[in-house]
Design a protein around this nucleic acid. Structure first.
Lengths: 343, 343
DNA sequence: ACGATGAGCTAATACGATTAAGTAGCTGTG
DNA sequence: CACAGCTACTTAATCGTATTAGCTCATCGT
């Protein structure tokens, strides 16, 4: 700026006033033009660190996430946040932290937060790739923070999560509404919120509908396609084969698809199969395209950043709806063959 | 720092020397301890902006990428870069830019680069999600930059890309080596480097092996699972059905799997099917698990960041190998049924 | 002719750190 | 006892910007 000032024959202060378009600066148009020209000619670049130092803000938002690699979900969360940030003239400083369910890595997280604080980020988004409940590192309270796809054990921070409960309810109601009365929920052992909530939604829908769930309505296995395939093989060859299978997520549903294909069981003719998450590379390209619940990742990312930027200090806990994506894997239950007693 | 100094009864400079562990600072152990204690007690935090201003560096690397959302590849690239950055004490400032093949968005990219320069990032990684050739915005030359999964039209920047050519050759050689003589390459219209290179590799392998490729060895369709399914249906019902299908990527290969299932064609019994990319959620969980080439995303991300941090100014063009991941979708070609003339 | 007014700009300072150059006090030496 | 040399600090300049109070000068009204 000093150089530009010298070359344009004005003071450094003038350059600052001109380049920042300060209202009421009282700089004449001709000077403004001259300054701007010189700045471009000399290839002047603002120095965000100096400016940040003076202004006491960085226009940067920290984004801490676990295991970005493993899941296809990170992208949506990041994109939502990114777009919102750009609109507000902010940038995203993304830090990835490895997370394993059994390993305590709070050190790594604390460290990441410390570094963000040193950079004087305007706020922090703490995102997890699966909806779950987390302990909040103390230092997160030193600055505005929002939880993304997670909730605090002590509820001490605002957060945004998908409506797993409502989504699972809606999906189950949808199946019940079509006449299904023997629905199995294929899921994993309880633990992460997403698992618990979806299962609760499954039962809540039955209750609301006034239909008793099957006695062994839930079958558990690992959350992988091959594991779900194995489970599906058993399930579909049972004498009391259910008419609909509601899978915890799309990956598992795919496994059930594979089992059905192997056994010559038709979807949705013989059995309806639905998933959850709406993974773009999977759900719409299965044959037949799969009905599932969409996880509002982009919207959640957006909510988090907007919340942070708005400066709202209220302790909110936002639950965003999961839209039902109807495709072709669901049909009314097949007519029972033997007894067509009374229509 | 001033506050800490006051509270500890020393000068601000001393605090700086202590907290930065400056060698030969000649500060006594007792003073050091006292300063550190006071700093902790007062909750002192370094100010990265002030430090950056003074030191003229930000310890931050800009990461520009297109369409982070659409592909499952971004995660690997980012993770590799992230890990390398952390080891070097740097951070990643990630900017996402929308990219559509037909839309010129160089403005958005220029803008993103400008903002990174204003933040005085130590360098920029410019990543694309598909290996292709890009025009380099002028401003990228103002600071150290590396191209990730892309090459410059004018070759003016160092870059790292996967060995699509070599990978496709290796895969084709593998099939040829097993005895396959009628191999079809299912791909899309020429354009992006990945497409061209893999196709070239396919033909180069034939040449090197001294085997003439089929006359209509390449069939083109859209790069989606459903499109590949349609193409696969046609291909597998042809009278001169090939013994092996080498698909441009895993998504397409999946479509061929679907077609094979539909037609009762056995993989790999009747036809061998291979893909490319090794998409984690797809290739290993198909039935049977699919043989494919792994794209070294994490390694490329790592190479890019290391290259940037090393300060090496040489104009390198790194090509990283794609390992062949052998699973179960390949077998020797089936014995021809009619003519077992001369073994 | 002269003070008031306003337009158009500048000088000075602060933001929070790093670091080269100094200084005060002590010790050992010839 | 003078002084070099060391230890353990401190002083002060500097990085690039934003901002406010104040300065200069031309113009205007009376």
């Amino acid at each position: 700026m000093q150089d530009v000032a010298l070359a344009a024959g004005v003071s450094q202060a003038t350059v600052s006033l001109v380049l920042n378009d300060v209202a009421d600066s009282g700089i004449s148009e001709s000077t403004k033009r001259r300054v701007r020209e010189t700045a471009t000619r000399l290839g002047y670049r603002h120095n965000a660190m100096a400016r940040g130092l003076k202004l006491q803000r960085s226009d940067t938002i920290g984004f801490i996430s676990d295991n970005i690699t493993i899941t296809p979900f990170a992208a949506g969360l990041i994109e939502g946040a990114q777009v919102g940030a750009r609109e507000a003239g902010k940038h995203l400083l993304i830090v990835n932290v490895d997370y394993e369910e059994n390993r305590d890595n709070s050190d790594a997280i604390e460290h990441a937060i410390d570094e963000l604080i040193e950079r004087r980020v305007d706020g922090v988004i703490y995102a997890t790739m699966f909806h779950r409940i987390v302990d909040i590192p103390r230092s997160l309270h030193e600055l505005p923070s929002v939880l993304l796809d997670a909730q605090a054990t002590d509820g001490s921070l605002p957060s945004v999560v998908p409506d797993d409960l409502g989504g699972a309810m809606e999906m189950t109601m949808y199946l019940l509404g079509l006449g299904h009365r023997s629905i199995v929920h294929m899921s994993r052992a309880l633990g992460p919120s997403a698992v618990d909530l979806r299962r609760n939604g499954f039962f809540a829908a039955h209750e609301q509908f006034g239909v008793a769930p099957l006695t062994d309505a839930v079958i558990e296995c690992e959350v992988t396609t091959p594991a779900a395939f194995e489970a599906g093989m058993k399930l579909l060859t049972r004498s009391d084969r259910p008419t609909a299978i509601f899978c915890f997520n799309d990956r598992m549903a795919w496994g059930v698809y594979q089992a059905a294909a192997e056994l010559g069981v038709s979807i949705p003719g013989d059995v309806s199969v639905v998933g959850f998450d709406d993974v773009p590379l999977v759900a719409p390209v299965l044959r037949p395209p799969m009905t599932t619940m969409r996880l509002p990742h982009v919207e959640m990312g957006r909510w988090a950043i907007d919340r942070l930027i708005s400066g709202n200090t209220q302790l909110e806990h936002e639950v965003l709806p999961c839209p039902l994506i109807v495709r072709e894997s669901v049909a009314p239950p097949p007519e029972p063959e033997r007894a067509k007693v009374a229509t």
